[in-house]
């Protein structure tokens, strides 16, 4: 190395300066900050809010009305009587909001990374897993708020669940939102550029949505294509929809609960690893972020 002048050692081996550790209060402050920021961003982006509602409402008002007579639904659990097709697809549309919202979070993280905002989060002294979980929770809270606004509009359209169902569905929405948000988080670590997000729409969102019982019961799918039925059974979104559907009627679908929790753990662990600077994928995918 050509080094005409080298600085002298400046107490490099001296004792580190201690500072008080973060306590529970500080962690809660951090979590609240991330939640507030995500909420403010959402409120500031009215188009995002409106489009998140328009999508499921179009399905409810137009698609369901048109297909009501074509797609008959027999009495299957948790329903004890015949139900309107609009009622049948409402849990799936709740899942659709969570799915799109999870992917929207993914998009926003890729955007933040490209714009540099992500760095302000990643250089926080809190553990990175905690920052990512905070970000995930913030996204889930925002998406659950969207679901309830949708359910309120659906109520006026006479698409109603038992009153207690609106409370019982909350934990199901939370768990399903966590799973789909964690998937979004993982995808955001894999997507190199914003432009690649169209691929997510085509290869993740639509296949997950259509290969599920969101729009038609799985027995119907089995009748028409056993292979597609198998694919639906492997799709984690299937279980998110069923968890929500049963919760509307005060029931727990245990298989769905287990699958949703399991996939949440897998997606979240993978996302945390991907964002870990020592092991992750982001380091390899992201450029230095400057030209210096």
């Amino acid at each position: 190395m050509n080094s005409p002048v080298q600085g002298k050692s400046i107490g490099a081996s001296a004792t580190p300066i201690a500072a008080p550790d973060f306590g529970l209060y500080n962690y809660l402050v951090c979590l609240k900050g991330v939640l507030v920021r995500e909420g403010l961003r959402f409120l500031n982006q009215r188009e995002r809010f409106i489009s998140s509602l328009v999508r499921p409402l179009l399905w409810l008002f137009i698609f369901a009305a048109g297909f009501r007579q074509v797609l008959g639904v027999s009495i299957i659990p948790p329903y004890k009587t015949y139900v309107l097709y609009e009622v049948y697809i409402t849990p799936g549309l709740c899942g659709m909001i969570l799915l799109f919202s999870g992917m929207q979070s993914s998009l926003s993280m890729v955007y933040d990374r490209e714009m540099g905002n992500m760095r302000t989060l990643l250089v926080s002294p809190f553990p990175r897993w905690f920052l990512l979980v905070s970000k995930l929770l913030a996204g889930v809270v925002v998406s659950i708020a969207q679901v309830y606004v949708f359910l309120a509009i659906a109520w006026f359209w006479d698409v109603k669940a038992p009153p207690v169902g609106y409370l019982m569905v909350l934990p199901a929405l939370f768990l399903a939102g966590l799973m789909l948000g964690a998937l979004g988080l993982l995808l955001s670590s894999l997507i190199k550029q914003l432009e690649n997000f169209a691929g997510v729409m085509n290869f993740v969102i639509f296949p997950m949505y259509f290969a599920s019982p969101a729009l038609y019961p799985l027995w119907r799918v089995q009748e028409s294509s056993p292979l597609l039925h198998k694919i639906c059974q492997l799709n984690p979104f299937t279980y998110a929809v069923e968890l929500i559907r049963f919760a509307f009627y005060g029931q727990i679908e245990w298989t769905s609960l287990a699958v949703v929790i399991g996939f949440t753990a897998i997606f979240l662990a993978a996302a945390i690893i991907a964002y870990d600077p020592s092991r992750g994928l982001v380091i390899r995918k992201q450029d230095a972020g400057g030209n210096g």
Binding site: F22, Y25, N26, Y27, V29, C30, K32, G33, V34, V36, R37, T120, L121, S124, P125, F126, L131
Partner: peptide, 12 residues
Amino acid sequence: LSYHASLHGIGA
């Protein structure tokens, strides 16, 4: 700035 403060555990 509030967001940054929270990322450092600084209360409101």
